[in-house]
Amino acid sequence: MKKKLTLGRVLIFAVLLLYTAFLFFPIITILLTSFIPSNELATSTDFVWWSAHMNLDAYKTIFAYDSYMDLTGLPGLVLGLFNTLWLTLVPLILGLLVAGLSAYAFSKSDFPFKEKLFKFSVIIRAIPLGAFGVISYVFYSAIGWTGENGFMPLLIPGMFGGIATMFFLRLYFDGISNSLIEAATLDGAGFFRCFKDVMLPLAKPAFFAQFIFGFVGGYNSYLAPMLYLQNQPKYVTLQLYLSEIRSLFPNAGSENIYCAAAILGMLPLILIYCFLQKYFIEGIATGGVKE
């Protein structure tokens, strides 16, 4: 059925269009600037809307040379992306497996103190601990996980799998019938075998949702790398690199480089999002409400 064209509907469309303009105006601005040659930016005191000599020099400069090259032979952006990927993926994947196993135990098997432990987890999870995000540095520095070992606080805690992730997966597992597990157990499959061959394939969407939620968080995370890895150029992450871009390219008229770097930093997630937007929205929406 075709909907009627009414004034109200046109108005709604107009407002949404306006909001889209508000959201994309900044992104288009930096996209534009990233193509403008440096010398034109340096000489102009006004915003340069257009140039006859638009080029990709800013992007080339980012990949051409910066001080990170001396260290590893890789430009900062590439090194940053590499570090971001392993620092995000290793704890994320291991943590998901651990949280999955824990959720599986809580959902499908029986063990001493099960109910009590679960209640304890629920209570402890409800405490908002965000305020300790920075002061935790004191703890990690006391156990020597700063400086050279600054990657440890980013790597190790995540490997234990979050309680929230465990709750989310447990809820999903509860919806999966016990009969498959029972059948597998009768065939002689143990705890881990059941998890790997029965639960994991069945709960793929739940794991995937949590994976996306965690990946976006890890990719964009700035506070923790800044706290623990700031003075360790070898472990620079993508976001740290972006936050340093001004000091890496301090010359006048380097704004095109900053804009190009911001675009390059945003691009990977936006591209992945465009292909998997359905899963993204589901993953973030369900990953957020974790109880």
Binding site: S102, A105, L117, I124, G161, G162, F191
Partner: peptide
């Protein structure tokens, strides 16, 4: 196997604590 499940189940809680 029950104790195994107990240990596995406690891991996230342990990390959190």
């Amino acid at each position: 196997e029950h104790y195994l499940a107990l240990i596995v189940a406690c891991l996230p809680l342990l990390g959190f604590v």
